[in-house]
Design a protein around this nucleic acid. Structure first.
Lengths: 367, 367
DNA sequence: GTGAAAGCGCTAACAC
DNA sequence: GTGTTAGCGCTTTCAC
């Protein structure tokens, strides 16, 4: 490092090492109060304070009261790094595949709900849709001794996740791993959701639905876009479509590519009369592309998304979408995480059922 | 804690304390490789390894090569908590006021740019628009010995920020503090931006602009919404408006309240013919409310936002907005942060000039 | 029920 | 240039 900022700190430390009898002005290094000072103030041992901090067994009520009073009086907050050396960090790392997806805020709210009232604090790492970045973030979280990791929409393989599960408790969201034993998961039934899309479109009178899905080199069958595709396919088959009539076009996570893909579909032979965007943020771009072509929604073309995120309700979007209860998923992910940390060794996989949130973008029957 | 997950760990530790001469299978606690093992493998001292890790002065090329080889061979990654006890954590905490603001992703990209190629990793805390939560997160970051904090759109007072600045390097974004000496800031000129809005609307032929701003109990003059209001006011005055004709309505961060406020403005006496939403995510809700009322944009009413975030470009929004170069702000915030950590003691306040990104939502002259 | 003391894995002062 | 070593602030035995 090209410089230090501990000129003052070094001084502090030197003063302390002289072991002056009068207690230093306000704590040790960095001016922070330490457990030792709390113990002195309360007239008890350091061990006693530590026990109170962790709600551990073996403290009398009187002692606990004294300790809590001193903690409050000195405004003491334990030094997480020091705790990490021996015990826990009370930190949950949350890996977000990206920050642009308007669905994630709901999940985050749910995680906050589930962690409220505990000592655990969530910190977020942002993967920007890159698997190598996701791995780097997971490493950084493990290096910082985070007690557990919640991974939202990540694309690491099950094997990679399991390797990490040996270092910290893990819950995945937006990644199906019903057979995994070393980590938990919380999801909606994406396959069912994909089928719901088809059922809804057909019921509204659309005749030629198509899907625009996520194009990425490293997608596995466990990822949500793939599950939704599978559900879309089986829904189409159940509706009597021949496999050759089931169209799924993949577009990169980029508005220009989504726009080009929509044009390709609509200007090609036998154009669809309804488009399913695999997630809302794709469907909103589909809406943009469709409107740019001068087509009317829902008369000329229906559009449906997935996630039922807040922008769907805006009048200019008025987008039908599959609701997957993000907040409940987040809440359950936090619960599973806390249970794991508390000692559960068996895996649990939470699944919630999706439902259609009907809006104007697929209202062919009423138009 | 109602249970432990260190049955195995405890075992490991006991084995080690027996000081067996044969090196343990693969590292100590948690199976992690330690600096001691790297030193043994490379045949050098732990101090030497530590120096290599920190690019510190006093290592020969030969030794460095040996150390790096062992690090790679053993897949060693330093234990951040242990580093934190004596030195740095190489962690930058980023406080996001909320996750819903579509402008923040650009800033985050900029921060990532600025941190790329360094050892520093950003971790994000999410404030959900609550000042008490923001304070809790800042505490959690300081408790975890993060080397620096970047705070985006936070609403703590300068005094509170300065108190924190004694514990960690600080850069604020979306908060103006030109006179602050203990921390840095990176912003666009929000006051100028507010004036640009008026200049643009008037030039387009709108006669009665109004502004919808953020309502919160704890806003200070330093916050961006207030700066934009000030710029709006001075722009209106410069355009010849009487103070009684300058209308600024405050709405809570909630689509229902924004909608109600828009109705109040448009259905009241002397309705505006253009509305400025203090940030894009407000302007998009204004657009929704206006469309719900059956008004045409831009003919019946113009709408303009601030931030020029990606949704502005969608055809269904086509929203004129003030561009404040979020990515550049983020990049500079990271730069300022690294400089502070490297030892800079004087404050720096980076300001970029905003510009109008013209789209259809204010195209009165062409309609 | 309580406290003394041994570390956790690093960093940095200091001796060589 | 290199290695030895004393802690950083906690947690956790283990005596008492």
């Amino acid at each position: 490092m090209p410089g230090k900022r501990d000129g003052k700190t070094g001084l502090c430390r030197r003063q302390e090492s002289v072991q002056t009898m009068d207690r230093p002005a306000s704590g040790g290094r960095n001016g922070r109060v330490t457990i030792r000072e709390v113990a002195e103030d309360a007239g008890v041992s350091v061990a006693a304070v530590s026990k109170v901090l962790r709600d551990a067994y073996g403290v009398s009520d009187v002692m606990e009261a004294k300790v809590r009073a001193s903690i409050a009086k000195l405004d003491y907050r334990p030094h997480t790094a020091a705790r990490a050396m021996r015990g826990q960090t009370y930190t949950i790392g949350v890996l977000l595949a990206d920050v642009k997806n308007p669905f994630f805020p709901q999940v985050i709210d749910g995680i906050d709900d589930g962690l409220a009232g505990t000592q655990y604090v969530p910190f977020f790492g942002i993967g920007h849709g890159s698997t190598s970045m996701e791995k780097a973030i997971v490493h950084a979280m493990v290096d910082r001794q985070m007690d557990g990791l919640i991974m939202i929409g990540q694309r690491m393989t099950d094997a990679e996740v399991e390797a990490t599960a040996r270092q910290a408790a893990i819950t995945v969201i937006g990644h199906h791993a019903p057979q995994a034993t070393l980590f938990d998961s919380a999801n909606n039934d994406d396959e069912r959701g994909g089928t719901l899309v088809v059922e809804h479109l057909i019921a509204q009178g659309y005749k030629r639905p198509a899907m625009i899905t996520l194009r990425r080199a490293d997608l596995g069958q466990a990822d949500v876009s793939q599950r939704r595709e599978a559900g879309f396919v089986s829904g189409m088959r159940a509706a009597g479509f021949d496999d050759s009539a089931i169209r799924i076009a993949a577009a990169a996570d980029d508005i220009d590519d989504v726009t080009a893909t929509v044009r390709m579909l609509l200007e090609g032979p036998n154009p669809p009369d309804a488009i399913f965007g695999w997630a809302d943020y794709y469907a909103l771009e589909v809406l943009s592309a469709v409107r740019a072509l001068g087509l009317r929604v829902p008369e000329d073309i229906g559009v449906i998304g997935y996630d039922n995120s807040p922008p769907c309700a805006y009048t200019q979007n008025d987008l039908t979408s599959i609701d997957q209860s993000g907040r409940e998923i987040g809440r359950n992910a936090a619960r599973l995480m806390l249970e794991r940390i508390a000692g559960r060794k068996t895996a649990e996989h939470f699944v919630v059922q999706p439902r259609v949130a009907v809006r104007n973008s697929t209202a062919l029957r009423n138009s």
